[in-house]
């Protein structure tokens, strides 16, 4: 390792810290000021008073419901991902059939498909099956687009299980299903939590599918709620920023407690 400090990079790193942190600080400080004070003093001033009114406003203008909807979408997406990806990765890593390797290539290719590219047919499909303006209609395509990256992440974890362990299971006469339940799943816990956290992040932050596939207030998710707030009361900046802050809290909590899983997922997302 290098022993001499790299001053140039160090200075750059601290400047970048300011660029990242100052807007977040301005956001937080604005949410605790009254609208009048924020308007008078400007965003860069230090707050002189303290109020929680902006958060009350944000919640009372429907944000609670949006949160609930987003939680439902996120839970649905994570559920589907955890149901579908482990057997797929197991087949990719262990099956000897040509079909399994073709499927893996297909999912690699799937990484390159942008959601925008297929949004019109997906809209048509969801309309046809009667799921328009239904949270399930958001969950299904969101989960489908989380599959490629989750498959690549989990297959990577499952490859680290040594062949000797499988052989020991096979020696005992274990079926593939038994090996999957008793050996593969317990040894892939790290990968499973990574794909759970990562697909949750994608669902929580999703915007395009809810924008196109939902319409009414009762199915609105948080990201759409923010967009709507902006056009609706864009002039009440502290209230708007309180809503933005609320939308970030769950993700930041997960980051605090599951940082490793999140960062691993993001690094795996190198293909996205």
């Amino acid at each position: 390792m290098k022993t001499r400090p790299n001053y140039l990079a160090g200075i750059g790193a601290f400047m970048w810290l300011a660029i990242v942190a100052v807007p977040l600080y301005v956001m937080l400080s604005a949410t605790f000021q009254t609208r009048a004070e924020f308007g008078d003093n400007g965003p860069l001033s230090l707050p002189a008073s303290f109020t929680l009114q902006n958060y009350v406003d944000a919640v009372s203008s429907g944000f609670g419901l949006y949160f609930l909807n987003t939680v439902i979408v996120t839970a649905g997406v994570v559920g589907i991902v955890l149901l579908l990806v482990p057997p797929l990765s197991y087949a990719i890593v262990r099956s000897q059939s040509r079909a399994a390797s073709a499927i893996f290539r297909l999912f690699l290719l799937g990484l390159a498909i942008p959601a925008q590219a297929v949004i019109v047919p997906v809209f048509y499909l969801i309309n046809t099956v009667g799921l328009y303006d239904n949270l399930l209609g958001v969950i299904l395509p969101t989960a489908a687009f989380a599959l490629p990256i989750c498959t690549i992440i989990l297959s990577g974890t499952m490859r680290d299980i040594t062949p000797e362990l499988y052989e020991a299971m096979a020696m005992d006469g274990a079926t593939p299903a038994r090996a999957f339940l008793r050996l593969v799943l317990p040894l892939s816990k790290g990968g499973l939590s990574t794909i759970a956290v990562f697909s949750a992040l994608q669902a929580w932050n999703g915007f395009l599918f809810p924008l196109i596939l939902t319409q009414s207030e009762s199915t609105r998710v948080v990201t759409l709620g923010l967009f709507n707030f902006q056009t609706q009361f864009g002039i009440n900046i502290p209230g708007l920023l309180a809503a933005v802050t609320l939308s970030m809290v769950p993700v930041l909590l997960v980051y605090l407690f599951a940082r490793r899983a999140l960062v691993q997922g993001l690094m795996g997302a190198g293909g996205k």
Partner: peptide, 27 residues
């Protein structure tokens, strides 16, 4: 012995095909 067939990969593949690959052709 004890290796899964590609049937294990089918549910996820069909699901993905329905929402990503078929729409790609449909577009």
């Amino acid at each position: 012995v004890g290796r899964p067939g590609f049937v294990w990969a089918l549910p996820a593949s069909i699901f993905f095909a329905l929402f990503a690959l078929v729409p790609l052709l449909a577009v």
